[in-house]
Simulated assay, not measured.
Amino acid sequence: MPTGVAIRDPRRQLFAAAERVLLRDGPNALTSRAVTTEAGCAKGVLHRHFADFDAFLADLVRDHVARLDEQAATLRAAAGTGSVAGNLAGALTTLFESVAVAIVGLVTSRDELRARLRRATPAGVPLLTEATAVLAGYLTAERALGRIAEDADVTALAPALIGTGHLLFADRKGTPPRAEAVRQAVETVITGALR
């Protein structure tokens, strides 16, 4: 690998490379060598910016969790507009069409990574736990607007929706579900809560 070549944003470049490896080859293929080869840089670049490979992976997951803030704002802004099922289906598709499914596989397959992430997310699966909170916040806003029943248990609906979305998109190599299939699954989960 070339040395002495300046990299504009090494963390972002390494994260993007890791995502490509994850999507193409899965969590088991994700090694520091695979990431740096994909990024086109020397292995030392990764170790210059991260204490070790698990620290790199933990920051990769945290980066994806931080990106949920933007999706949460978009979803909250949609409260009261369109259909509740359509908004939720769109949010699940945005979440799971990304590298999220592969990241969940990565977190569940690496004990040290999971242990590091447990410090910030003591329960649940990092990324999915935070995505559940995003959906619960949206459902709460819709309940306040009267589009979700007052007695709807958003703390039960949100994880049910995340689990449904994860199962629909879980096959990384297969054909993603059609938009109508996602919407239909969402409608099935929330049907009793709609007004």
Rank of each mutant, 00 (worst) to 15 (best):
M1I: 04
P2E: 01
I7Y: 12
P10C: 00
R11M: 13
Q13N: 12
L14G: 09
L14R: 10
F15E: 11
A16Q: 14
A17N: 10
R20L: 08
L23C: 04
L23T: 00
R24C: 08
D25M: 00
G26R: 04
N28Q: 14
L30Y: 06
L30R: 11
T31H: 02
R33S: 15
R33K: 15
A34R: 09
A34N: 02
T36E: 07
T37L: 14
L46E: 05
L46T: 07
H47K: 07
R48Q: 06
R48M: 11
A51G: 11
D52Q: 04
F53Q: 09
A55T: 05
A55H: 08
F56G: 07
D59N: 03
D59R: 15
L60G: 02
R62M: 15
R62V: 07
R62S: 10
D63A: 13
D63M: 01
D69K: 10
D69Y: 05
E70D: 13
Q71W: 14
A72W: 04
A73K: 02
R76F: 03
A77M: 04
A77T: 13
A77L: 08
A77R: 13
G80S: 00
V84Q: 11
A85G: 13
A85T: 13
A85E: 10
G86Y: 10
G86A: 09
N87F: 03
A91L: 10
S98I: 07
V99C: 07
V99D: 04
V101P: 06
V101D: 08
V107N: 04
R118Q: 05
R119S: 06
R119A: 13
A123P: 02
A123S: 13
V125C: 14
P126D: 00
L127M: 02
L128Q: 05
T129V: 12
E130V: 14
T132S: 04
A133L: 13
Y138G: 01
L139R: 02
A141T: 01
L145I: 03
G146F: 03
E150C: 10
D151Y: 09
D153E: 09
D153V: 02
V154P: 11
A156G: 10
A156W: 12
L157F: 04
L161F: 07
I162E: 08
G163M: 13
T164I: 05
T164L: 14
T164R: 11
H166K: 12
D171G: 06
R172Q: 15
K173V: 15
K173C: 08
G174T: 03
T175D: 09
T175C: 08
P176E: 03
P176I: 02
R178E: 09
E180Y: 06
A181V: 11
A181F: 12
R183W: 11
R183K: 12
A185K: 00
V186K: 03
E187V: 13
T188E: 10
V189L: 00
I190G: 01
G192D: 08
G192A: 15
G192K: 01
G192C: 05
A193S: 07
A193V: 01
L194N: 01
R195E: 03
R195H: 11
